[in-house]
C-alpha cells in the first residue's frame, strides 16, 4: 500500500485537520467531536447535516458552506460515523429551524443516522438518497445505493434552505430531487482501504467492473475493458431506461471521477456521455465534471443525470461557497 499517511489509525483525523485549516474561511472543526461545521451559521435556517464513511472526499466536508451543508460528519474510511458524532453535529448546526439529515442509502449510514435522530430529541427529518441504477430496486431488498447524485441533492437543498424554506418543504424537495436523479458507475481498479492495506478486489489488466458503488466494492459484473464510447453508451442506456420518457428534457449531467482517474479522461467520458444523453432526447443544461464523490484511489467514474425544471435550475444556479463547489460568490 502506497499512501501519503502517517499512521493508519490517524488518517481520517489528520486529513480532517488539514481540510479545516486549509478552508478556515468557510468551515471549522467541531468542538464536541471531529466533524466539519460551517463557519457562519445562519440563525433560524433549517440546518443541513450529512455524513458517512470517509474516503469519498470532497464529499461531504467539501460541500459545507454557504448555499450547501451546515455540517458533515465523517466516519472512519468507508464506515458510517457513530450516533454520538452525528448528535454532536446536529446540536452544533441547529440554530432553531430544525435539522435535515441527508443520508446515502447504505444500511450502516441509515441505521447510525436513525439512532442519532431518535436519541437527539430535536426536530430532525431525513432525506435518503438512492440514485444508483446498478442495483435492482425491490421493496424486498436494501434497495439502491446513494452515490454521486447525493451532491446534486445537497446543492439544491442547500440553496432552498438558504431561502428560508421549512423542514417539511425541504424534506419533500429532497425526496423529489432524489427521485429525479440517476447514476451508474464503472471501475477500472479497486481502491486500497488504509486499514486493510491491500486492494479490496483485483481486476485483470483487461477487465473492468460495471455497476460499482463508491466503496471499492465489486460491481454487478465484470467485463472486458471497452472503449470509452461503448462504456458511455452502456451508462446512458442504463440511466435513460430507468428514467423512461422523463429523460427527454433539461438535465444536469455530472461525470464524477472515483479518485484515481485523470481529469482528461473524465472530460473525454463527458464528451461521449453527453452525446449519448442528447441522442436519447435529453438536453444537457448544466454540467459538472470532476472528482466529487470518490472512492479513495479507485480508477473509474460514474455518470449522473438529474432532471431539471425551472425551480431546480434556479436552485442549482444559486450561489454556493464551499471548498469543493463554488460559484456566484
Amino acid at each position: 500500500m502506497k499512501k501519503l499517511i502517517n499512521a493508519v489509525e490517524d488518517v481520517v483525523k489528520e486529513s480532517l485537520a488539514g481540510f479545516c485549516s486549509a478552508h478556515s474561511d468557510i468551515v471549522r472543526l467541531g468542538e464536541a467531536a471531529p466533524f466539519v461545521l460551517r463557519r457562519h451559521l445562519k440563525r433560524g435556517k433549517v440546518a443541513l447535516v450529512s455524513g458517512g464513511g470517509s474516503g469519498h472526499e470532497p464529499l461531504h466536508g467539501g460541500f459545507v458552506g454557504e448555499g450547501m451543508l451546515d455540517a458533515a460528519v465523517p466516519g472512519q474510511v468507508f464506515t458510517s460515523p457513530t450516533p454520538d458524532l452525528i448528535i454532536a453535529a446536529i446540536e452544533a448546526a441547529d440554530t432553531g429551524g430544525g435539522v435535515l439529515l441527508i443520508v446515502k442509502n447504505y444500511e450502516g449510514d441509515v441505521m447510525n443516522f436513525d439512532m442519532a435522530r431518535e436519541m437527539s430529541g430535536k426536530s430532525v427529518a431525513t432525506v435518503i438518497t438512492d440514485d444508483d441504477v446498478a442495483v435492482e430496486t425491490s421493496t424486498y431488498s436494501t434497495g439502491r445505493r446513494g452515490v454521486a447524485g447525493t451532491l446534486i441533492v445537497e446543492k439544491i437543498l442547500g440553496a432552498a434552505a438558504e431561502q428560508g424554506r421549512s423542514l417539511a418543504e425541504l424534506k419533500a424537495l429532497g425526496d423529489r430531487v432524489n427521485a429525479a436523479t440517476r447514476s451508474i458507475g464503472i471501475a477500472l481498479t479497486s481502491c486500497t482501504v488504509p486499514a486493510a492495506g491491500k486492494p479490496t478486489f483485483e481486476l485483470g489488466d483487461d477487465e473492468m467492473e460495471v455497476g460499482v458503488g463508491i466503496h471499492g466494492e465489486p460491481g454487478r459484473r465484470r467485463v472486458k475493458l471497452r472503449p470509452a464510447k461503448e462504456i458511455a453508451a452502456e451508462m446512458v442506456g442504463a440511466i435513460t431506461a430507468d428514467l423512461g420518457a422523463r429523460a427527454r428534457g433539461d438535465v444536469i449531467l455530472l461525470i464524477n471521477g472515483f479518485g484515481g482517474t485523470p481529469l482528461s479522461e473524465l472530460y473525454l467520458m463527458y464528451n461521449d456521455v453527453r452525446h449519448g444523453v442528447e441522442a436519447a432526447g435529453g438536453t444537457v443544461a448544466r454540467s459538472l465534471v470532476g472528482n466529487f464523490v470518490t472512492s479513495l484511489d479507485m480508477a473509474g467514474c460514474s455518470a449522473t443525470v438529474s432532471l431539471l425544471d425551472e425551480e431546480l435550475r434556479r436552485l442549482w444556479d444559486a450561489p454556493v461557497h464551499t471548498a469543493a463547489l463554488r460559484w456566484g460568490i
Partner: peptide, 14 residues
C-alpha cells in the same frame, strides 16, 4: 459498540 464500531455492524451489535 454503538459509539465505537460504526458501519452497519455497530448499530446492530449495539
Amino acid at each position: 459498540l454503538v459509539m465505537k464500531v460504526g458501519g452497519a455492524s455497530g448499530p446492530l451489535y449495539g
